[in-house]
Design a protein around this nucleic acid. Sequence first.
DNA 1: GTGAAAGCGCTAACAC
DNA 2: GTGTTAGCGCTTTCAC
Lengths: 345, 345
Amino acid sequence: MNRKATISDVAELAGVSIKTVSRVANHEANVTESTRSRVEEAIAKLDYRPNMSARSLASHRSKFIVLVYDDPSAYEDPSAGYIIRLQQGALNACRTQGYELLIHPYNYRDEAVGHELEGLIARARPDGIILAAPLSSMSKFVRTIADTGTPYVCLSPGKENGDTFAVATNDHHISAEMTRYLASLGHKRIAFITGDPNHRAVANRFLGYRDGLQQSGLEFSENLVAAGDNSIASGEAAAAELLGRPQPPTAIFAANDDMAAGVIRTAGRLGITVPGQLSVAGYDDNALARQMHPPLTTIRQPLSQMAERAAQALISQLRQDPPAKGTEVVPASLQIRESTGPVPG
Amino acid sequence: MNRKATISDVAELAGVSIKTVSRVANHEANVTESTRSRVEEAIAKLDYRPNMSARSLASHRSKFIVLVYDDPSAYEDPSAGYIIRLQQGALNACRTQGYELLIHPYNYRDEAVGHELEGLIARARPDGIILAAPLSSMSKFVRTIADTGTPYVCLSPGKENGDTFAVATNDHHISAEMTRYLASLGHKRIAFITGDPNHRAVANRFLGYRDGLQQSGLEFSENLVAAGDNSIASGEAAAAELLGRPQPPTAIFAANDDMAAGVIRTAGRLGITVPGQLSVAGYDDNALARQMHPPLTTIRQPLSQMAERAAQALISQLRQDPPAKGTEVVPASLQIRESTGPVPG
DNA sequence: GTGAAAGCGCTAACAC
DNA sequence: GTGTTAGCGCTTTCAC
């Protein structure tokens, strides 16, 4: 492979100045059709591709976008699907717009996180940053990014981030919808298992549950709530607790799929059939949901679309378009499968 | 945030030339201890971070490594864990060595794949490329990369790639070991479900199975082999076929976990208990394996370590160390769970 | 051991 | 419409 062609090579071959080549390469105006095509020919002939480093250095735009998310090594496999979907969405937007995606998992429990990210920003000078939950709701972390002056968007909750643009899903509404769906099956005692309180989106699910009860004319009761921590084991424990109470629920809505899996497991151990005697619903639609027995009724977040929208918003902001403000909502959807059914009896 | 400090700012503050700052920043020799510490102080004080674009442009080294893998959107969720583990390994190595990781999923069924990657290489000038299976065994694809002159390493099989360095796992041996393990439980009729033939690593598993039989003094029989395509559905079908034969197997070893899940599902439908009447083993240790009922005995590939080693090898090669050749093997391990047990009767 | 000068390949600002 | 001139912030080469 010969030396890569540079802008000067193209200019020479096309008989124009390098600035004209630059104009053509960047689809700028003020080039006559004839020169443009001559330059394009030369570009094709030499297989010229602009050098990104040179371009970045001169233009102060790196054409890089960083996707920051919680390090999966802290989690188990099921969160892999979550991350992959985020990546896919962001990559989609980046590819069509000519950006590269840098991925940066960070363990949010690590104190040094802010500093690491600062270093990355200083070195690579990304044009924008996409911040996924739960990092996007850690104000200290968000502030570190804001202070660098790099444009960023938050994925998910992001309430108190001032005038930051955020892409969220309607956790609250869709959770209410799931609750109403369970009520519509005749369930009167619908329990809820709460998740990790650090995750604001998960807290919203609980609020939605309460609304859904109310909208269905059902009374909220503390006796129908148990606390989990997003893990399967906590779902098992919470289910055992709920099902052992005097007036056990006929339906359990868990704040995530893993806990719902725990519920199903406990039900199996106790000889309670699902959905015959107990309906179970989750949230996330992770890899396990479809494969469980019975397949889990759950809620699917539009992660890929959310990340794609976030990246698009970021990129159009970089193009000097009026910067988006507020929160854009991409709706989640109910995935009704076989773990839910009519109330027994 | 003020303008970022440049090398000149540091030089001025430390009272040295920019070249000296450059030497310190790059840990080069030929700097007296006193000047070094003076410069380091200035760097710290100004919070100086070298600009990567400028550095790349001048040095012709981008400090980027690209990880190329098959696009998961073509797959289902379970492959997410596979990709995440690859990324983790590569990221680990990159972080400690000061490299950034660019991720590039490609759909290998897409004809344009080679061209796209070529474009990426021309634009971003990555210092190295890590190629994961099955792309790493597509010689046309590998050749495209080789032709750009960019150093690369292959993950997984990579036999016919000439003098390319590859990191692989011992599919063959570990599959033989799994087979011997099943034989050691007393099984005489151990069946195998083959997977997607495009994936060379998967083919090796079949060879290992045959070896394992032989090593255990068991006869190979075509009647104990069924073809799958890596999907759950194909596992169900293959199991139905195998279990419907005159001399049904007492153990089934599937070339991947999804097919093993299909086997367990079919067994359930047919009223065959696992592992009571049928032992089932898989390969991959994906997200489902631990969550299945019963939890699946399977084989875990050291994907993260493989990717880490690949990245390390790539980076040390970039440092002019003697370029690695041949294939480095990182051993896989048996994960014995509850889907396998003694032969019935 | 240290520094001066040149230039990596591009874009920006302005001239024509 | 097009070209000229300066850099962007570094590393390289080579002089001292």
